[in-house]
Structures are given as structure tokens and as C-alpha cells.
Simulated scan of single mutants.
Amino acid sequence: MEAKREEGRRVTSHENSVTCVLYNSLFRQVISSDSGSSVICWLVDTGQKVKQFHRCHGDAEISTMALDGTQTRLFTAGTDGVVKIWDFNGHCHHRLNAGGTRPWTSPRF
């Protein structure tokens, strides 16, 4: 993946910690998300960043992602209890509140 090097700093691809990574064989892209609620698409052959969507879940962290069967839609789920369905132009087509009115918290065992 494309990395940026800043003087005296580590090489990074995201400004926040990466939470999920997918491979889209249709577009030959790697899709990564981070705790700052950003989604970035990278060309697998060159590592070039081709698209970046910021604040996909507002202030909530993206906890997981998945692709639909056609690999033309991206599902993101945030710690806010919301699942969103996106196209690869950054348009959110559906917003599903899977957590009711409360943010999702991890179950305790």
C-alpha cells in the first residue's frame, strides 16, 4: 500500500489505527478502514490510494466491513450500532440502525 513518510515519523497509510481490511477482486482493490471512521481504497498492483471517504460513521469507529455478492456495494458497521451500505463513489445508499437507540457495546462473558 502507498505509504507516506514524514521526517522523523513512522511510515503510515492511515492517520488512525486500521480496524478492517478487505480484498475486492472485481476492482482489484484492497479496502481498509480505521478507528477515525475513514475508508480507503488501494490498487492492489501498485499500492496507489484511489479513493478515501472520511467520517463514514461520524465520530464512531468502523468495527467491521463486508462486500455484497457482486462486490459493488460495501457494508460498514460502526460502534454506534449503525450498518451502512455504500457504493464505491462514496454514496451511502442505506443506513440501518442495528443497535436500537444505544451504541453497541461488547458483551461480557
Rank of each mutant, 00 (worst) to 15 (best):
V21K: 06
V82T: 14
P103M: 05
C20V: 11
M65D: 05
E7P: 00
T46P: 02
L67V: 04
I62M: 07
L96V: 15
E6V: 06
R10C: 12
E61I: 15
K84A: 07
K49N: 01
F53Q: 06
M65H: 03
F109Q: 04
I85R: 03
I85W: 00
A3T: 09
D59T: 12
V44M: 06
V21E: 06
F88D: 00
Q52N: 09
S32H: 02
G47M: 05
S33H: 00
I85H: 00
G99K: 00
G100P: 01
R108T: 00
T70S: 15
A66V: 04
V21S: 01
H94R: 15
L22R: 05
E2Q: 13
L43P: 01
V50I: 14
H94D: 13
A98E: 13
H54N: 11
T46C: 08
E15V: 13
R5P: 03
R73E: 10
G69L: 15
R95G: 13
C92W: 07
T19R: 04
T72A: 03
S17R: 12
H94C: 14
A98Y: 12
R102Q: 14
G47S: 00
C20S: 15
D45R: 12
R28M: 01
Q71N: 15
R108F: 04
S25R: 10
S13Y: 09
V83W: 00
G99F: 02
E7L: 10
Q29V: 10
T64L: 10
F27S: 15
S35C: 15
C92R: 03
F75Y: 14
W104R: 05
V18G: 02
L26S: 08
S32Y: 01
H57D: 07
S37H: 06
D80F: 07
G78E: 04
A66W: 01
V30G: 03
L26C: 08
E61P: 07
P107K: 14
R95D: 10
V82R: 00
C92H: 09
E15L: 13
H54S: 08
D34Q: 10
T101Y: 02
T76I: 08
Y23L: 13
K51Y: 04
N16C: 14
H14I: 03
L43M: 05
R5I: 08
I85C: 10
L26F: 08
L67R: 02
H14R: 04
S17V: 14
H57V: 07
